[in-house]
Lab assay of single mutants.
Amino acid sequence: LNLKQAKEEAIKELVDAGIAEKYIKLIANAKTVEGVWTLKDEILTFTV
Protein backbone atom coordinates (compact mmCIF):
# COMPACT_ATOMS: atom_id res chain seq x y z
CA LEU A 1 0.00 0.00 0.00
CA ASN A 2 1.48 3.34 -0.93
CA LEU A 3 0.93 6.63 0.90
CA LYS A 4 -1.77 7.87 -1.49
CA GLN A 5 -3.77 4.64 -1.16
CA ALA A 6 -3.39 4.63 2.62
CA LYS A 7 -4.71 8.20 2.81
CA GLU A 8 -7.66 7.37 0.54
CA GLU A 9 -8.63 4.33 2.62
CA ALA A 10 -8.23 6.14 5.94
CA ILE A 11 -10.19 9.18 4.77
CA LYS A 12 -13.01 6.98 3.47
CA GLU A 13 -13.18 5.20 6.83
CA LEU A 14 -13.26 8.51 8.72
CA VAL A 15 -15.92 9.99 6.43
CA ASP A 16 -18.03 6.84 6.84
CA ALA A 17 -17.71 7.25 10.62
CA GLY A 18 -18.87 10.88 10.41
CA ILE A 19 -15.55 12.38 11.53
CA ALA A 20 -15.13 16.17 11.23
CA GLU A 21 -13.20 17.71 8.35
CA LYS A 22 -10.48 19.10 10.64
CA TYR A 23 -9.43 15.54 11.52
CA ILE A 24 -9.56 14.39 7.92
CA LYS A 25 -7.12 17.18 7.05
CA LEU A 26 -4.64 15.68 9.52
CA ILE A 27 -4.70 12.45 7.52
CA ALA A 28 -4.25 14.36 4.26
CA ASN A 29 -1.09 15.97 5.71
CA ALA A 30 0.46 12.74 7.02
CA LYS A 31 3.92 11.98 5.63
CA THR A 32 4.10 8.17 6.03
CA VAL A 33 1.77 5.19 5.72
CA GLU A 34 2.44 4.38 9.37
CA GLY A 35 1.52 7.95 10.27
CA VAL A 36 -1.76 7.63 8.38
CA TRP A 37 -2.73 4.47 10.26
CA THR A 38 -1.66 5.85 13.63
CA LEU A 39 -3.61 9.07 13.14
CA LYS A 40 -6.68 7.20 11.89
CA ASP A 41 -6.66 4.89 14.90
CA GLU A 42 -6.19 7.77 17.34
CA ILE A 43 -8.93 9.86 15.71
CA LEU A 44 -11.39 6.96 15.76
CA THR A 45 -10.49 6.13 19.37
CA PHE A 46 -11.00 9.65 20.69
CA THR A 47 -13.85 10.98 18.56
CA VAL A 48 -16.26 8.07 18.15
Rank of each mutant, 00 (worst) to 15 (best):
F46K: 11
L1Q: 09
A28R: 14
A28Q: 14
A30C: 15
T32S: 08
V36A: 02
L26N: 03
I27L: 07
K4F: 08
I19G: 02
K7E: 01
T45I: 09
I43R: 00
L44H: 03
A10C: 06
A17W: 09
K31C: 10
T38L: 14
Q5A: 10
I43W: 03
N29M: 13
Q5T: 08
N2H: 12
I19R: 03
W37H: 08
L44T: 04
D16F: 12
E8K: 10
E34K: 09
V15I: 15
K40I: 09
T47P: 07
K25A: 13
K12R: 12
L3S: 01
G18I: 03
I19Y: 07
T32A: 02
L39N: 01
K4W: 11
I27M: 05
L26I: 07
I27C: 02
T45E: 09
I27W: 01
K25S: 10
Y23N: 02
L44Q: 03
K40Q: 05
K12A: 08
K25H: 09
I43T: 01
T32Q: 02
T45H: 14
E21S: 10
N29I: 08
V48N: 13
D41Q: 13
N2M: 14
D41N: 15
I24P: 00
L14Y: 01
I27S: 00
E13S: 08
L1F: 12
E9W: 14
L1R: 10
K25L: 13
V48L: 12
I24L: 10
K4P: 05
L1S: 10
L1G: 08
D16V: 10
A17F: 08
G35E: 15
N2W: 11
I11E: 04
K22Y: 13
K4L: 11
I24Q: 06
D41I: 14
V36L: 05
T47K: 10
A17R: 12
A17Y: 09
I19L: 07
Q5L: 11
E21Q: 09
K4G: 06
A20V: 06
I11F: 04
L3F: 03
E42H: 13
I11A: 05
E13L: 12
N29G: 10
E42I: 15
Q5N: 08
I43P: 00
E34N: 06
A10S: 03
L1H: 10
E42M: 15
L14C: 04
E13N: 06
T32I: 01
D16R: 14
Y23W: 14
L14T: 01
E21G: 08
I24Y: 10
A28S: 10
E21T: 10
L26G: 03
L39T: 05
L3R: 01
V15F: 07
K22T: 08
L1P: 09
L14K: 00
A20G: 10
T38A: 15
A17S: 06
T45W: 13
N2V: 11
Q5H: 09
A20F: 04
T38N: 12
L44D: 02
L3E: 00
L3H: 01
I19K: 03
T32P: 00
I11Q: 04
T38C: 14
K4Q: 14
L44M: 09
D16N: 14
W37L: 11
E34I: 09
G35H: 14
E9C: 11
K25F: 09
G35D: 15
A6H: 04
A20E: 12
V48H: 14
A10M: 03
V36P: 01
N29D: 12
A20W: 05
I43A: 06
K25E: 09
N29Q: 12
T38R: 15
K31T: 14
L26F: 06
I11P: 00
V36K: 00
A30R: 03
K7F: 04
D41G: 07
K4Y: 08
G18Y: 03
D16A: 15
E34A: 07
K31I: 11
E21H: 10
I11Y: 05
K31R: 09
E8F: 08
I24K: 03
G35L: 13
L39A: 04
A30W: 02
F46N: 12
E21K: 09
V33K: 03
E42N: 07
N2F: 12
L26D: 03
Y23Q: 03
L39H: 02
K12M: 06
L1T: 10
T32R: 02
L44E: 03
L26K: 05
K7H: 03
I11M: 09
T47D: 07
K7P: 00
T47G: 14
A10G: 02
Q5M: 12
N29W: 09
I24M: 06
A20M: 07
D16G: 11
V15Y: 12
W37M: 12
L1V: 11
K12F: 04
T32G: 02
L3I: 06
D41K: 12
V36C: 02
K12D: 03
T38H: 14
A6K: 03
W37A: 08
L44P: 01
I19P: 00
L1Y: 12
A10W: 02
V15K: 13
E13Y: 09
K4E: 13
I11V: 08
V36H: 01
Q5W: 09
D41E: 12
I11C: 06
V33A: 04
E42R: 15
E9I: 14
K12H: 05
V48A: 14
L14F: 04
E34W: 08
T47E: 08
E9T: 11
A6I: 06
V33N: 02
E21M: 13
G18T: 02
K4R: 12
V48I: 12
V48S: 13
A17L: 13
I43K: 00
N29L: 13
T38W: 14
T38K: 15
I43Y: 05
A20R: 05
Q5P: 01
V48G: 14
G35V: 10
E8R: 11
I43E: 01
I27P: 00
K31G: 07
L44V: 05
E34Q: 09
E34G: 06
V33S: 03
K4I: 10
N2D: 12
N2S: 14
E8I: 11
L14S: 00
Y23R: 02
G18V: 02
N29A: 12
K31M: 12
K7Y: 04
K40L: 15
A28E: 15
G35F: 07
D16H: 12
K22A: 09
L3Y: 02
F46H: 13
I24C: 06
E9S: 11
A30D: 01
D41V: 12
K25T: 08
E9R: 14
V15A: 08
Q5G: 05
A20L: 08
W37T: 07
K22R: 11
A10R: 01
K7I: 12
E13G: 05
K31H: 08
G35P: 00
G18S: 04
K40F: 14
E13Q: 13
L39C: 06
E13T: 08
Q5R: 12
N2P: 09
L26E: 05
I24A: 04
A28F: 13
K40G: 01
V33E: 04
